[in-house]
Amino acid sequence: MFAASPRTQPRALAIWLLVAGVVGWWAAFSLTMERFHLLENPGSTASCDFSPLVQCGKNLESAQGAVFGFPNPILGLAGWIAPIVVGAAILSGARFGRWFWLLFELGMTLAFVFVVWLIAQSIFVLGTLCPWCMVTWVVAIPSFYAVTLHVIRTGMLPAPRALRRSADRLMGWVPLLAVVSYAVVAILAQIRLDVLGSVF
């Protein structure tokens, strides 16, 4: 166990995890309901199908939408519970050991890698932008940055002192890092899918 401090008991991180977890879980729940709708009504369209470019149906019914043999949103329903629980626990005064934070970081890293893969598949293979998927991207990306920087700055993830100091300074820049990441995704989507051209 680490002694309580602003870094090991990070209220801002806890609040973000709680909010991101709720938003991410709701997106996963909404996608799950859309998948049920499509299964119950073959040939119908999802309520989030706004155009050939902006839609959920193509993503949900694709091979990429069920990578592990079941709909991806089920992963979200299970996975987003973790940030909710961790955030709420920290706000209630809980302290976690190094092993817990490292496992949590591993989970966030795997989620981030999966999200990046899904973004690439959506833009470069399926040619669609799924609204509820994008909500997941919006909360998953900064969550990964925040948790990673936290475990580095606190020394829970072994790193040189200079790197820990850099991680501590970058913690306040997570919103900007997230915005830059969103911009990269938007630019890739524009180049590949001509999003603006389809809207205007």
Rank of each mutant, 00 (worst) to 15 (best):
A186V: 14
V195W: 04
R161P: 02
A183I: 12
I191S: 05
M171Y: 13
I187Q: 08
P175F: 09
Q190S: 01
L188M: 07
L193E: 10
P160R: 10
L188F: 12
R164N: 05
D168H: 06
I191F: 07
P160K: 09
A162H: 08
D194W: 04
L177P: 00
L188A: 13
R169Y: 14
R192I: 03
R165T: 11
R169F: 12
A189D: 03
V174D: 05
W173D: 05
V180H: 02
A167V: 07
L163Q: 10
Q190A: 01
A159R: 09
V184F: 02
S166T: 15
S166I: 12
M171V: 05
A162L: 13
G172Q: 13
S181I: 01
Y182G: 07
I191G: 01
A189Y: 05
R192L: 02
L170P: 00
V185R: 05
Y182T: 01
A178S: 15
I187N: 03
L188R: 01
L193I: 08
L177S: 09
A162W: 15
D194L: 04
R169Q: 11
A159P: 00
W173K: 11
Y182P: 02
D168T: 05
L163F: 07
V195E: 07
L177E: 10
A162K: 13
A186E: 05
V185C: 09
Y182S: 06
P160I: 10
P175Y: 10
L193Y: 10
R165F: 13
R165Y: 12
R192G: 01
S181R: 00
P160Q: 12
G172E: 14
S166N: 07
L176K: 02
L176M: 13
A189E: 05
Y182D: 11
V184P: 01
A159Q: 09
A186D: 06
M171P: 00
A178E: 06
A183S: 11
A159G: 03
V185K: 06
A178V: 04
A178M: 13
I191N: 07
P175H: 09
G172T: 14
L193V: 05
L177N: 04
M171Q: 10
A178P: 01
G172R: 12
L163K: 05
W173Q: 11
A178N: 14
Y182E: 09
L177I: 11
L193M: 09
A189N: 03
R192N: 09
P160T: 10
L193S: 04
R192C: 04
I191R: 09
A183Q: 07
V179M: 13
S181G: 02
P160E: 12
R164H: 06
A162Y: 07
V180E: 06
S166E: 11
A189F: 04
S181L: 01
L163P: 01
R169E: 12
S181Y: 00
Q190G: 00
L193H: 04
R165K: 12
V184C: 02
S181P: 00
V185W: 13
W173G: 03
R169K: 14
G172N: 14
